Computed example of a mutant assay.
Amino acid sequence: MARLLADEQFPRHAVELLRTFGHDVLTIQEAGKAGISDDMVLDFATLENRAVLTINRRDFFKLHKIKPDHAGIIACKDDLVWNRLATNINTVIFPESTLTGKVFRVNRFSSTTA
């Protein structure tokens, strides 16, 4: 299962559901890093070998271009149906042997690897 870091705005309910799927999910708040910038979130996730879970898609797409050597970015559309969000994330990352350097786009009804 994947090692993930949920950024500050990522829904806590989706984090809990991802944990029930067996993923090792740490929130930025649990790490004691609340309030840090997006580039620092990506750096911390990379240091901890965790892919970033975010709904801040635009900023993390830009960061991927600047810092492509990361542990993965899972950029999600904001979805208030947390079960669907967590299930879509799991569906996208489950078959992957590694998330390193990849960007995953998770939408409400379809998902892709960029």
Rank of each mutant, 00 (worst) to 15 (best):
R57A: 09
D43T: 08
L85Q: 07
L26R: 05
N88S: 14
A6K: 00
G22N: 12
V41S: 08
T20P: 06
A6I: 10
F109Q: 07
T113V: 06
K65L: 09
L99D: 06
Q29L: 15
F94T: 11
D69M: 03
L42C: 12
I93L: 09
L4Y: 13
T112A: 13
R50H: 03
V81N: 13
T20H: 11
V25C: 09
D43N: 11
A45G: 08
S111G: 01
L4T: 11
L42V: 03
E48A: 14
F21V: 03
L53G: 00
I74Q: 02
F44Y: 14
I89C: 04
F21N: 04
L80Q: 05
L26K: 08
S111T: 07
F10E: 01
V25F: 11
D43M: 06
A75L: 05
V103L: 08
S111N: 05
P68H: 03
T20S: 12
H70K: 05
E96L: 12
R58E: 12
H64L: 05
A34L: 08
L80D: 01
N107I: 00
G32W: 06
K33M: 15
I36A: 09
T54W: 10
A51C: 08
A51D: 04
E48V: 00
I89Q: 12
M40H: 14
N49T: 00
G101Q: 11
K67L: 11
N83V: 06
L99E: 06
P11E: 15
T113S: 08
R12D: 15
A45M: 06
P68N: 02
D24A: 07
S111K: 04
I28F: 14
K67V: 09
V81Q: 11
T98S: 15
E48I: 00
T100Y: 07
F104P: 00
N90E: 14
I74W: 08
H13A: 04
S37N: 10
Q9D: 15
D7Q: 14
D38R: 01
D69P: 00
V25Q: 09
D69A: 04
T27I: 01
A114P: 11
M40S: 15
R12L: 15
D7M: 14
F60N: 02
I66D: 11
T98I: 06
T20N: 10
T54K: 02
G101I: 00
V106S: 01
H70W: 03
D39S: 02
G35Q: 07
D69C: 02
E48K: 05
R19V: 13
D79H: 04
I73S: 02
N107E: 15
A6D: 05
R84C: 10
N56H: 12
N88W: 13
M40T: 04
D7L: 10
S37I: 01
F61C: 02
P95G: 09
A34Y: 07
D69I: 01
N56P: 11
K77N: 06
H23P: 00
E8Y: 15
K67M: 12
D79W: 07
T54I: 09
S97Y: 13
I55M: 09
L18S: 10
P68L: 03
L4A: 10
T113C: 08
S97A: 13
W82I: 05
I93F: 10
I36H: 06
I74V: 09
Q9K: 03
K102W: 10
R84N: 14
V15S: 02
F61Y: 10
I73G: 04
R105C: 02
L17A: 12
